[in-house]
Simulated scan of single mutants.
Amino acid sequence: MVFFAGVDGGVTQLRVTHTTTGNEKDRLQYMLGVRTGYRWSTGLGNLFVTPWIGFGYVLNADDIEIDGDMYESSAFTPFPTIHVGWKF
């Protein structure tokens, strides 16, 4: 088992659509975050499993207004996941 931690960054293209009018707004969101997890060998050759979790902060998480309605944006983004992979 190998523990790891690190930092990450990302860019997300966000599209919000007003459900009544169909009008849309697009926004690029920029995120910085941290992640941590473990890598376990399965005992089946080079097959491994890596559960990890990341927490990101969206730098420009402003609310979006379309046709008088406000869509709230969250500044914090959790990202739990499990990777299954083969080590070459």
Score class of each variant (00 low, 15 high):
residue 57 Y to C: 11
residue 24 E to A: 14
residue 6 G to K: 08
residue 49 V to S: 03
residue 5 A to N: 06
residue 4 F to Q: 10
residue 34 V to W: 02
residue 64 I to D: 05
residue 85 G to A: 00
residue 32 L to Y: 07
residue 19 T to C: 04
residue 62 D to H: 10
residue 27 R to Y: 12
residue 24 E to T: 15
residue 16 V to T: 15
residue 64 I to P: 05
residue 65 E to V: 10
residue 7 V to D: 12
residue 70 M to Q: 12
residue 21 T to I: 03
residue 77 T to N: 12
residue 79 F to L: 08
residue 20 T to W: 12
residue 85 G to N: 02
residue 28 L to H: 06
residue 10 G to R: 09
residue 57 Y to E: 11
residue 80 P to K: 02
residue 1 M to F: 13
residue 11 V to Y: 14
residue 83 H to M: 05
residue 60 N to L: 03
residue 86 W to I: 13
residue 69 D to N: 11
residue 66 I to V: 06
residue 79 F to E: 09
residue 58 V to G: 00
residue 73 S to Q: 06
residue 70 M to W: 10
residue 53 I to G: 15
residue 1 M to N: 12
residue 32 L to T: 05
residue 76 F to N: 00
residue 16 V to E: 04
residue 3 F to N: 12
residue 84 V to I: 13
residue 2 V to E: 15
residue 81 T to V: 04
residue 56 G to N: 08
residue 7 V to C: 13
residue 69 D to H: 13
residue 71 Y to M: 01
residue 70 M to S: 09
residue 86 W to F: 07
residue 14 L to K: 15
residue 58 V to D: 01
residue 33 G to P: 08
residue 67 D to Y: 02
residue 2 V to H: 14
residue 54 G to N: 00
residue 8 D to Y: 10
residue 36 T to L: 08
residue 9 G to R: 14
residue 7 V to A: 15
residue 42 T to E: 05
residue 81 T to R: 05
residue 47 L to E: 04
residue 52 W to A: 14
residue 34 V to R: 05
residue 48 F to C: 07
residue 50 T to V: 04
residue 70 M to D: 08
residue 13 Q to R: 14
residue 31 M to V: 10
residue 29 Q to D: 02
residue 12 T to K: 13
residue 43 G to Y: 10
residue 37 G to V: 01
residue 53 I to Q: 05
residue 6 G to R: 08
residue 27 R to P: 01
residue 2 V to L: 15
residue 13 Q to W: 11
residue 47 L to D: 07
residue 22 G to P: 06
residue 42 T to R: 08
residue 3 F to S: 14
residue 14 L to N: 11
residue 33 G to V: 04
residue 24 E to M: 12
residue 78 P to N: 03
residue 39 R to C: 03
residue 23 N to F: 09
residue 78 P to L: 07
residue 26 D to M: 13
residue 69 D to F: 12
residue 83 H to E: 09
residue 2 V to Y: 08
residue 17 T to S: 13
residue 70 M to K: 14
residue 67 D to N: 04
residue 80 P to D: 02
residue 76 F to C: 01
residue 73 S to T: 01
residue 51 P to H: 02
residue 86 W to P: 08
residue 58 V to F: 00
residue 44 L to W: 15
residue 54 G to T: 02
residue 28 L to G: 03
residue 87 K to T: 09
residue 81 T to M: 07
residue 65 E to F: 05
residue 86 W to Q: 05
residue 17 T to R: 14
residue 34 V to L: 12
residue 31 M to L: 11
residue 27 R to F: 13
residue 84 V to W: 08
residue 70 M to P: 06
residue 41 S to F: 06
residue 57 Y to M: 09
residue 45 G to Q: 09
residue 82 I to Q: 00
residue 10 G to D: 06
residue 32 L to V: 12
residue 79 F to H: 09
residue 72 E to F: 03
residue 3 F to D: 11
residue 68 G to P: 02
residue 31 M to W: 02
residue 56 G to D: 10
residue 15 R to M: 11
residue 60 N to Q: 06
residue 51 P to K: 04
residue 6 G to D: 10
residue 6 G to T: 13
residue 82 I to D: 01
residue 29 Q to W: 05
